[in-house]
């Protein structure tokens, strides 16, 4: 559902590391969950989860924290967006107990914020 991204000041503190990276490959994709049928043709924004994905990132730039490697797999949770190979953007990542790969944070992942907003926030929060 197309709600605005979380405020970066709320999301950034939750991230263990951040990179600018390219999606090299979609390695795994979950099943599409039930999608409610819209009542009218212009109906949008009905809550629905797009499938989870496991994708391989190719790091282009380290923003803050310690990235594992130049290339590693990450987990995109079920939610409001899906990734496709070839796109590039800033990723905020953290590790959790439920996934063996780092998890992408943010309602829209690399599309949450423009790069200049990301850089300004990193500076504001003193992340390095």
């Amino acid at each position: 559902m197309a709600m605005p991204p979380e405020p970066i000041d709320e999301l950034l503190p939750k991230a263990e590391f951040g990179v600018i990276a390219e999606v090299l490959e979609i390695k795994e994709r979950g099943e599409q969950a039930y999608i409610p049928k819209p009542e009218q043709p212009d109906t949008v924004d009905i809550p629905r989860d797009l499938p989870y994905q496991v994708v391989t990132l190719q790091v282009k730039e380290r923003l803050f924290g310690q990235a594992q490697a130049e290339r590693f797999d990450v987990y995109k949770p079920a939610g409001d967006y899906v990734l496709r190979a070839g796109i590039e953007g800033p990723f905020f990542l953290c590790k959790d107990e439920d996934h063996k790969q780092p998890v992408i944070l943010g309602r829209y992942g690399p599309d949450n914020y423009t790069l200049h907003v990301v850089r300004a926030a990193i500076k504001k929060h003193g992340r390095s």
């Binding site: 559902m1 197309a2 924004d45 409001d80 496709r84 796109i87 590039e88 599309d111």
Partner: peptide, 14 residues
Amino acid sequence: AERYSGQKIYPWHA
């Protein structure tokens, strides 16, 4: 939704 990835245009949105 895939076509919107990386475009800063968002799926299922008005």
